[in-house]
Computed example of a mutant assay.
Amino acid sequence: MITGLYHAHASSWAITLLLFFIAYFLIVANKQKPGKIVHMVLRLFYVIMVVSGVGLLINYQFALTFLIKGLLALVLIYFMEMILVRTKKGVLIGKMKTYYWIQFAITAILVVLIGFNVLSF
């Protein structure tokens, strides 16, 4: 069971990041309807990712490293949503845009490094 959860979780992460960039570039290109559809599919993958992650946390008995990864993953989902929503509304500009993209990059790197056991506590 843990292998299935792991593969579902890892695959949903890869698809989530791919869908995020597709949605972002569709929104930036002012293709509202396709961007909205991809954004909704992305939200479905957030749910799949969170559910499989909680299943893994339960199987790993809430190990501290993976608990921190889970919290960072929720923060990453927040930054992904804020980048997409604020870009769509046209309010993500200047220093705020830089802040959100830097936070997205740092959090994504940390989540990936913890997920592949490069970082552990």
Rank of each mutant, 00 (worst) to 15 (best):
K33G: 07
I15S: 02
L119S: 12
L42S: 00
A63L: 08
Q61E: 14
F79W: 05
W13N: 03
S12T: 07
H39D: 07
T65S: 11
W13L: 04
E81A: 07
E81D: 08
L76V: 06
V75R: 03
F66I: 10
L18T: 15
V54K: 05
I58W: 14
L92A: 04
G94H: 10
L44N: 08
Y24E: 09
L26K: 12
T98S: 09
V47I: 11
V47R: 00
Y46W: 13
L42T: 01
F45N: 01
I15H: 03
Y99T: 02
I109N: 11
K89W: 11
M40H: 15
L113W: 09
A73I: 13
A10L: 08
N30Q: 10
A73V: 14
L92K: 07
R86E: 09
K36V: 11
F45G: 00
T87C: 05
A8L: 14
F25Q: 13
M1K: 08
K31C: 10
K33F: 07
F66D: 03
F104C: 00
M40L: 11
S120E: 14
I27V: 15
L18Y: 04
A10Q: 15
F45T: 00
V54C: 04
W13M: 05
I2H: 12
V118E: 12
G55E: 05
T107N: 04
I106P: 01
F116M: 08
P34Q: 08
K97C: 02
I22G: 06
R43N: 10
N59Q: 15
M40R: 15
K31A: 12
M82F: 14
V75T: 15
S12W: 00
A108D: 06
I27P: 07
V50A: 02
L67E: 10
L67V: 09
V50D: 01
T3W: 14
F21D: 05
M40S: 12
F45L: 01
L71C: 06
N30C: 13
R86N: 14
S120L: 14
Y100A: 08
V47G: 00
F79A: 00
P34F: 03
T16W: 03
Q32E: 12
T16D: 05
P34Y: 08
V85H: 14
N117H: 15
L56D: 06
I83Q: 02
Q32C: 11
V118K: 07
V51I: 11
T87G: 06
L56V: 15
V28E: 05
A108V: 05
F79R: 00
V112P: 02
I77S: 04
F62M: 06
Y24I: 07
M40G: 05
M96K: 13
L44M: 08
K97D: 04
F62K: 06
V28S: 09
I2K: 15
V47W: 00
M80W: 02
L64Y: 14
K95I: 04
F104D: 00
I93N: 09
K88P: 06
S12P: 06
M96N: 13
G70K: 11
G35P: 03
L113V: 15
G70D: 04
W13P: 01
V47A: 01
G55Y: 03
F21P: 13
T87S: 04
N117S: 15
F116G: 12
Y100C: 13
Y6N: 08
W101M: 12
V111G: 01
A14H: 12
L64H: 09
E81V: 13
G55A: 15
L92T: 02
